[in-house]
Design a protein around this nucleic acid. Structure first.
Length: 432
DNA sequence: AGCACA
């Protein structure tokens, strides 16, 4: 019966309790900070921090009811509010009379985190991505991953509980950045608690477990394919290389067209095909090169750079799992330069009416600056150019208005780099 | 800025 429930909701009518409820606490307020402001009023028997959805509430249990009353009374009449780290905290009697320490094992702080990666299968998030994400907070000693009914989980071992806590506080409830995930994965929230483990027993370096303190550990058979993959300078294992790049475009303030991408990516070699699509509300593109080497050069030169000055249209590049795109030869969202001569666009000739590009456009040769079919010099210039990229300015001077006509080169598929090297003299922003 | 967890 509700009439028998005399628990009061509001401060002036609450019945006193030796348990006090604190709210509006600063982020990650510690038991020590709580005890600091409570101990002048009595003996603190128990505390519970990081309560509530925002983890900014807490409970403190005094030894005696009068001690709790004295604290509430003091701040009720004080001109200075109770503060922690300069932040005003609000104190009232809890509607319970003791702190029930129902700390599950996952709430006992330790140096090993138990991470549940929601919404993914084990294969979707590599141990290297996990390592990359969690290394942001300190040296990761060991990682073990496994699949349980709860889903894909990982144990992350840090040096100490403080480092583990900082990682937990920063990442719990958040998602792994999308550009670190495969194309087919949406958001994947991290649920992080503490493991009771102190020291993980990693027997092998494998696709499921790593011991970063012991690089000499034998490699498990199941991890051989992974071990054969190249390792980047940061020690992060790369995804399988491909001649096709997946580009995620961040902060897309300007339209990123097929032509823009073609111009940007042609600096590193012949672009065979481009496809632009939307995924999870973000613009993505696939760029196909003839071989992995060129794709790698483009990836390394362009990763993290912006198509436009001012941080606009920042590129995040990964290798696609595709090797040969099946795209419409000419649409606003895709282009196949191996099938279709781009000059057809300028001359308004549909692709399917022309199967012999070169002989049809002899006149265009004359429009081009002095270049012929032996464009070694141009090719070399642009292949060597990415090393001189100014950091943070993938395409300095690039402006949306300066998008080159895709029609400029009728031979893009025959002569590597001829497009970007010759078609747009006012548009050579890459290397100054 | 408003009450935990099993």
């Amino acid at each position: 019966m509700s009439s028998s429930n005399h628990q009061q909701q509001f401060r002036y009518t609450q019945t006193p309790s030796k348990v006090l409820h604190f709210r509006n606490l600063p982020w990650e307020c510690s038991d020590e900070e709580l005890a600091d402001i409570c101990s002048p009023f009595g003996k603190v028997m128990n505390t519970k921090c990081n309560v509530g959805a925002n983890r900014n509430q807490a409970f403190v249990e005094f030894a005696d009811l009068n001690q709790a009353i004295s604290m509430v009374s003091y701040y009720a009449s004080s001109s200075e509010p109770a503060q922690v780290r300069g932040k005003t905290v609000y104190i009232q009697y809890s509607n319970r009379h003791e702190i029930v320490n129902s700390k599950g094992p996952g709430d006992v702080p330790g140096n090993v985190l138990l991470v549940t990666i929601e919404g993914v299968e084990a294969g979707d998030v590599s141990i290297d991505v996990i390592h990359l994400v969690f290394s942001a907070f300190g040296f990761v000693h060991k990682i073990a991953t496994f699949e349980k009914t709860a889903g894909f989980q990982a144990l992350i071992q840090y040096t100490d509980a403080e480092t583990a806590a900082s990682a937990r506080n920063a990442l719990d409830g958040r998602s792994i950045p999308r550009y670190l995930l495969p194309e087919n994965v949406g958001s994947c929230n991290l649920r992080i608690s503490y493991s009771a483990h102190r020291d993980l027993n990693i027997k092998f370096q494998s696709n499921r477990s790593r011991d970063y303190t012991n690089p000499m550990l034998p490699v498990n058979q199941t991890a051989i394919d992974i071990a054969l993959q190249p390792v980047g300078p940061d020690g992060k294992r790369k995804e399988p290389e491909s001649n096709v790049l997946l580009a995620l475009v961040e902060n897309m303030q300007y339209a990123v067209t097929v032509d823009v991408l073609h111009t940007v990516f042609s600096a590193f070699g012949t672009v065979q095909k481009i496809a632009i699509f939307e995924k999870n509300g973000q613009t993505q593109a696939l760029i196909q090169y003839p071989d992995v080497t060129v794709a790698t050069a483009a990836k390394e030169a362009l990763e993290g750079h912006c198509i436009y000055d001012g941080g606009y249209c920042k590129l995040h590049l990964t290798y696609s799992r595709h090797t040969d795109l099946n795209v419409k030869a000419f649409s606003d969202k895709s282009r196949d330069y191996t099938v279709l001569d781009p000059s057809l666009r300028a001359t308004q000739v549909p692709a399917w009416q022309n199967t012999q590009a070169a002989p049809v456009y002899p006149g265009l040769q004359g429009q081009m600056p002095s270049w012929d079919t032996n464009q070694q010099e141009v090719t070399q210039n642009y292949l060597s150019a990415p090393s001189s990229f100014p950091p943070g300015h993938a395409v300095p001077g690039y402006s949306p208005a300066a998008v080159p006509p895709a029609s400029a080169s009728p031979h893009a598929h025959m002569h590597p780099n001829s497009f970007s090297g010759t078609s747009t003299p006012g548009m050579q922003p890459y290397y100054g």
